[in-house]
Amino acid sequence: MIRPGSRPATGTGEQGPRLTFRIELPLLVWMALVWGALWQDFSAGNLVFGFLLALVVVNVFRLPPVELSGRFNVWRAVVFAVGFLGKVVLASFQVFALAVVRGPRVRSAVVGVRLRTGDDLMVTAVGHVLTLIPGSFVVEVDRGNSTLYLHVLDVNTHAQVERVRRHVLDLEARLVRVMGTREEMARVDAERAGLAFPPPQDNGSTPRGGDTARKEAP
């Protein structure tokens, strides 16, 4: 799963234990905190024991390491989290209203949106957030092209489909600002400045017809 633009994949234990440990540190800390929360005891001894336990778990049940981008903007994360909570509330009431008012007559669409980043973590994060905010959830992920196929509730016109696309990309941009790599940041910034940004890992032969959405118009 080595793809251009990202760091070389870290195999399990090939790069030496030191590098693996550094990459897994956030996971270990998180697991120690979970341990503390489950015992409702955040004393140092308990946390250290949880950390050791996490170390054992991570080494016995090996999984491909999740590579964080190395930067995290706390302020933007807080803004994002508040906005996200607001949207979750909105989503719930929207679904409620739709279920009561429209019910069986509701129409929807399956929309494919190609994201800018090819990073697995970022695609996962965007997919998760999209599933919880109003209107959309992820049906299928095309990992090779980092394309998400969303099922969007309550879509009645093609203009709305386009609006969903822009909305998804806007969301991705905001997530990139929270925890994307510098490379992705630069791309988002360039785009905001009105410059064309280089398409993500283009295979060169990608046709950009723009006909697909129209083809199925009734």
């Binding site: 494919g112 190609r114 990608t206 697909t212």
Partner: peptide, 13 residues
């Protein structure tokens, strides 16, 4: 899929 999705997400190009 690369070819196809390129068409799909034309609006997002």
């Amino acid at each position: 899929v690369a070819g196809r999705t390129g068409g799909c997400s034309a609006g997002t190009g």
